[in-house]
């Protein structure tokens, strides 16, 4: 049960009227803390359910998980491929002209690793996942909540977090990782295609060796962590906004925009933390 102090903080945080700039900042900060606490609690509950009930009702849950992975991964592949090829074209297109002017074409691979593998690949894939699957998730869960389907599941002795949240979180997290890898590979291929079309004197072997030399083992670890964190943030935030609080049908659109905003903010914050980690 929520403590009296926590309820008081939540009340203060939700009141944004009046006061000095410092007071308003304090309220916003407090509200952010309340949201972070609730999201953290939801994350821990979901993690516990995923770990303890992974094989419970597996003949019902595992097909659902596969369906989520198909929806969030396989069906998103054409869009992800389109964006990845475009990204590769843009990055190489902008950088090759500059590198040629200063005679530093050897840095093409390094730029691709720095820009695509470390930063833009995971970020763009996460944005794609959020815009296509995350918003659909909030709408689905919010509508289910508003129409009383969650209570219906509970009345049947079915844990809503297990039935509704766990497959979506697992599906989205795994799909984010898989799509990011595909996107990066296609971006690198798209980059080389552009360089080839622009008659940049670089062979595939040289291009790949440049990328290989620029890559470190820590990049693979960072990529895995980033995609897992981005996928986790998006899936958790969207499920939380759709499911964790009582909604009317009219609240679903607001919950969707809130989920998008909070997912973007959290992804940027964690991206910053990863960047600091690599700089240190």
């Amino acid at each position: 049960m929520r403590s009296r102090a926590a309820a008081s903080y939540a009340g203060i945080a939700s009141d944004t009227r009046g006061g000095s700039a410092a007071t308003r900042f304090g309220r916003v900060f407090l509200r952010a803390m309340v949201v972070a606490r609730d999201l953290g609690a939801f994350f821990l509950i979901t993690l516990a359910v995923v770990l303890t009930k992974f094989n419970v009702a597996s003949k019902v849950m595992h097909p659902m998980m596969r369906r989520e992975m198909t929806r969030a991964g396989f069906k998103l592949l054409p869009m992800a491929a389109f964006m990845a090829l475009g990204l590769g074209f843009l990055v190489i297109g902008q950088s090759v002209a500059l590198l040629t002017q200063v005679g530093a074409q050897d840095l093409t691979g390094t730029i691709m690793v720095t820009v695509i593998i470390r930063e833009l690949g995971p970020a763009v894939t996460a944005l794609l996942m959020l815009s296509k699957i995350g918003t659909a998730t909030v709408i689905e869960l919010g509508t289910a909540r508003a129409l009383g389907e969650v209570e219906a599941l509970e009345a049947l002795g079915i844990d809503p977090v297990h039935y509704l949240v766990a497959p979506r979180v697992c599906g989205m997290a795994l799909s984010t990782f898989a799509l990011t890898v595909y996107s990066i590979l296609l971006s690198l291929a798209g980059g080389y295609m552009f360089a080839f079309l622009q008659n940049v004197p670089i062979t595939p072997g040289v291009y790949l060796s440049q990328i290989g030399n620029a890559l470190k083992w820590s990049d693979f670890i960072l990529l895995a962590m980033k995609t897992a964190v981005f996928g986790g943030i998006i899936s958790m935030t969207c499920c939380y906004e759709g499911l964790a609080r009582p909604l009317d049908l009219g609240d679903v659109s607001e919950a969707t925009t809130r989920a998008v905003m909070r997912s973007v903010v959290l992804c940027v914050v964690f991206d910053g933390i990863f960047l600091l980690q690599t700089l240190i």
Binding site: A57, K59, L147, G148, E149, I158
Partner: peptide, 21 residues
């Protein structure tokens, strides 16, 4: 409060599928 995306037989069978795996 039937599940709108499921057919009637899926609605009816869901509890027993879930609980008996």
């Amino acid at each position: 409060r039937l599940f709108p995306q499921m057919t009637v037989i899926e609605n009816v069978a869901l509890p027993v599928c879930y609980h008996l795996n």
